[in-house]
Nucleic acid binder design. Structure first.
Length: 581
DNA sequence: GGCCTAACTTAGAACACTCCAG
DNA sequence: CTGGAGTGTTCTAAGTTAGGCC
């Protein structure tokens, strides 16, 4: 029982890691993970040296890599004479290229995909592009196309295949086995490893998931001339099929793929990679779970942090706090933005829209219930009614105020905010805030207080107004940028290009200004009744401050005024960035 | 320093195989 | 045998994120 529940705890924790782990933790170095794991599992691993063989630290994925290249699908076999496509009721012999594309459609006829208008439209457009000029002249209306006979032929063929004798089936099986033997393995650092997908994807009609705007488009046949081969310098280069050439042969040992090509429907790159059973993939998988174990040690801190953020002055922080809470509690995906009109409309945490949640003050005897209803990855529906913390509920209400259903629920954040927030990508203002916070922690400890300045409330109000104005300007600029971008997509003129660039600059500038104001606000607010001077002048070793400034590229004048610089001249003089107290 | 995309993991659909009841 | 439920495997679409590029 206890073993079982331990596993369950791990399991649910893992879910959170899987979906948010890298987002909340900086990635450990490979060697670090390996060393820890070795200590933890030393005995067990001693029996399986395969996993322990020195893995390089420098991003190199292999020393040698040899393979036979990918396996191509068979060439197109034309239909027999007595099977025909019909147009407007009459049989029509198609050119071989047009016929092949027609068979893709004919084969899918009893799939409900083919009944969808977008599917038909996309297919018809792409098909006509493959036709000869004469065919294109003749075949103008999809409704006059009849693929029935072709369809029946393919159904017949698959029946025949099913009815084959045992011996015939055995022969086929032998053949595929032989091909797998030949193409299904590679040599990586001298070890024979199974390849995951050693076949080039055959041509056909693209079937996206859900309401995909590109469903039915022609996925073109891939030729050797489209394929990049990756293998080691000194190994045998795979032979391209007779009469063909590879697009390129490269020797990149920083990646794990053996071959790649660009697919024409979405323009994305497809790869031939190793099977999950391989050493390379296995080690990566192991590393992943080691990160999960590291997260386990930090998760309580993370939870405290996001609960604190629920009460923040900054809207951005509140949104971040609630978003991370969702990811933690519900294992939602991060939710990157997607190009509109290029893919199905699906969302994750950060891309949730107002229309995707409903708030219930009370539902089925429970308080503060959030009802989720949205399409996630692969257009799978996420439906859930979740009682949440009262403070989260209140925040959600706030986030939804004065918004339209199609507006972003978390309009002030995006996925990148969760990634590695270290000094190297902090602005000067952020660094100073963190310095002042450290200073404040000391002051609070020493009970160095002050009465809030008389003008405090008034000046905060002014600042707040400034921020609101800036936010409004930023929102407007963003909208203008969006419009400029879409205009530019429509017609790619120099003038519009310049306009986009100009708007981009504007948004960037406003964002920076807003950020500065917000940081100022936070700092002032936190400093309301705290006196920093005493601890800064008398208790904090100035060498720590000087080293910090040097290490993180902060000018010393930003933390010490003239008098302070004079007082600490000795420290400024003698301290380098490595100083440790 | 923000944006873009190459490289990688994740995931459901489709297909293939197995096993057991009738 | 046969067929269909259940399970395993293959395929490729759909995500995420590090790091390169400007």
């Amino acid at each position: 029982m206890s073993a079982c529940s331990t596993w369950l705890v791990r399991g649910s924790l893992w879910l959170k890691v899987r979906r948010a782990g890298a987002a909340l933790l900086s990635l450990p170095k490979a060697g670090d993970v390996r060393a820890r794991a070795r200590r933890a599992h030393g005995a067990a691993l001693a029996q399986e040296p395969r996993w322990e063989e020195g893995r390089s630290q420098d991003g190199k994925k292999w020393k040698t890599l040899e393979h036979k290249g990918p396996l191509f699908p068979p060439e197109y076999e034309p239909l027999p004479q007595d099977v025909s496509f019909y147009y407007n009721g009459k049989p029509l012999r198609l050119s071989i290229v047009a016929e092949e594309v027609a068979t893709f459609y004919a084969k899918m006829l009893d799939h409900e995909y083919t009944s969808k208008e977008i599917f038909q439209k996309n297919f018809f457009t792409d098909w006509r592009e493959e036709m000869t000029a004469e065919e294109r002249d003749l075949i103008c209306e999809f409704s006059k196309c009849d693929f029935g006979e072709m369809h029946r032929y393919f159904v017949e063929q698959s029946e025949k295949k099913k009815d084959m004798s045992k011996e015939e089936k055995e022969v086929l099986k032998e053949e595929t086995k032989k091909l797998t033997e030949e193409y299904g393995y590679c040599l990586l650092d001298g070890h024979k490893e199974k390849i995951g997908n050693f076949r080039v994807e055959p041509p056909g009609l693209f079937r996206g998931r859900g309401e995909h705007p590109k469903m039915g488009k022609l996925k073109k046949r891939i030729l050797p001339e489209d394929i990049i081969i990756n293998c080691s310098n000194d190994s045998k280069t795979p032979e391209p099929p007779k009469g063909h050439k590879w697009k390129e042969v490269r020797h990149d040992d920083t990646v794990t793929w053996l071959a790649s090509w660009v697919e024409n429907v979405q323009g994305s790159i497809k790869y031939i990679m190793l099977n999950p059973s391989s050493k390379l993939k296995g080690e990566k998988d192991w590393q992943k779970y080691e990160i999960a174990r590291k997260l386990k040690l930090k998760v309580e801190t993370i939870r405290k942090e996001y609960e604190r953020d629920w009460k923040s002055k900054e809207m951005k922080k509140r949104q971040k706090g609630v978003a991370v809470y969702f990811i933690d509690k519900l294992a939602l995906r991060a939710g990157n933005e997607k190009e509109e009109g290029e893919t199905a409309d699906t969302v994750g945490c950060c891309s949730l829209r107002v229309e995707h949640i409903t708030l219930h003050k009370e539902l089925d005897g429970q308080e503060c219930v959030v009802e989720f209803d949205f399409l996630g990855k692969d257009s799978i529906r996420y439906y859930n009614k979740v009682p949440v913390d009262k403070r989260v509920f209140k925040n959600l209400k706030l986030f939804m105020e004065n918004k339209n259903p199609e507006d972003d629920l978390f309009d002030r954040i995006n996925v990148s905010m969760f990634l590695l927030n270290n000094y190297s990508n902090m602005t000067l203002e952020e660094k100073l805030l963190s310095y002042n916070r450290a200073n404040r922690a000391v002051a609070i400890l020493c009970n160095h207080q002050r009465t809030a300045p008389k003008t405090f409330e008034k000046s905060m109000q002014n600042l707040q107004q400034k921020i609101e104005l800036k936010q409004k300007q930023l929102d407007e600029a963003k909208a203008e940028l969006k419009k400029a971008k879409s205009d530019y997509r429509e017609s790619k003129t120099e003038k519009l290009k310049r306009l986009v660039e100009q708007k981009e600059k504007m948004v960037k500038r406003l964002q920076e200004q807003l950020k500065k104001l917000q940081l100022q606000m936070t700092d002032r607010e936190e400093n309301k009744v705290i006196a920093l001077g005493t601890s800064k002048l008398n208790y904090l070793d100035p060498r720590i401050s000087v080293a910090w400034c040097k290490k993180f590229d902060v000018p010393i004048e930003k933390i010490y005024n003239k008098t302070q610089r004079d007082k600490f001249a000795w420290a400024i003089d003698m301290t380098n960035e490595d100083f440790e107290f």
